[in-house]
């Protein structure tokens, strides 16, 4: 165990510059009200926390960029109790983007069966909802609703973070 190495490594570290926001509250979504419970998409879901497993079943990555935008400090999706996880076992549902390609079809179904009940399927982007005009492509198997019971559709190509957050909040109820 090299203690000297430890000490030097601490010294040589570059001091971290923090990102300082000009205002603490300048989020876009802050203006929106918490969605009322009448927009209940599923009765058996427990409100307050929604953990999703993201599956890219054949997207162009445009939707992914918007998703990752949702988790930036500006939008901070996690502040509404919504987060992504690596293991479907930890999740409450799937967040599917893109058309379902032939190669991803089985994997998508397996991921779905690996999620414990009660679970939701969110189809994000026009591709996931209706193939966005790509249905006749040689590698395209189907849209998500053809394979899985979709509970929430977030249309757009790609949908904006504001829209994504707005829709997901109807599930997390926060």
């Amino acid at each position: 165990m090299n203690i000297i190495g430890c000490v030097t490594s601490m010294k040589s570290r570059v001091p971290v510059k923090l990102y300082k926001p000009t205002k603490w509250f300048h989020q876009v979504t802050e203006i929106q009200k918490q969605p009322d419970s009448s927009e209940n998409i599923r009765g058996d879901l427990i409100p307050g926390s929604l953990v999703l497993r993201h599956v890219d079943s054949g997207s162009c990555n445009g939707c992914e960029i918007e998703i990752s935008g949702c988790f930036s400090p500006t939008y901070d999706l996690e502040s509404y109790g919504i987060s992504l996880t690596a293991s479907p076992r930890h999740s409450d549902g799937l967040l599917v983007t893109g058309v379902v390609t032939v190669n991803m079809r089985e994997a998508l179904q397996e991921a779905y069966s690996s999620v414990p009940e009660p679970k939701v399927v969110v189809a994000l982007g026009d591709c996931a909802i209706n193939c966005n005009g790509l249905r006749s492509g040689y590698g395209v198997a189907a849209a998500v609703p053809d394979l899985l019971p979709v509970d929430l559709e977030i249309p757009g190509c790609p949908p904006s973070p504001t829209k994504i957050i707005q829709s997901l909040r109807t599930v997390s109820k926060r």
Binding site: S87, P88, R89, M104, E106, A107, E110, A111, S113, S114, P116
Partner: peptide, 11 residues
């Protein structure tokens, strides 16, 4: 429920 182990989408 007893399920297949999670294989990260692999067969």
């Amino acid at each position: 429920r007893t399920v297949e182990p999670w294989a990260c989408g692999a067969r």
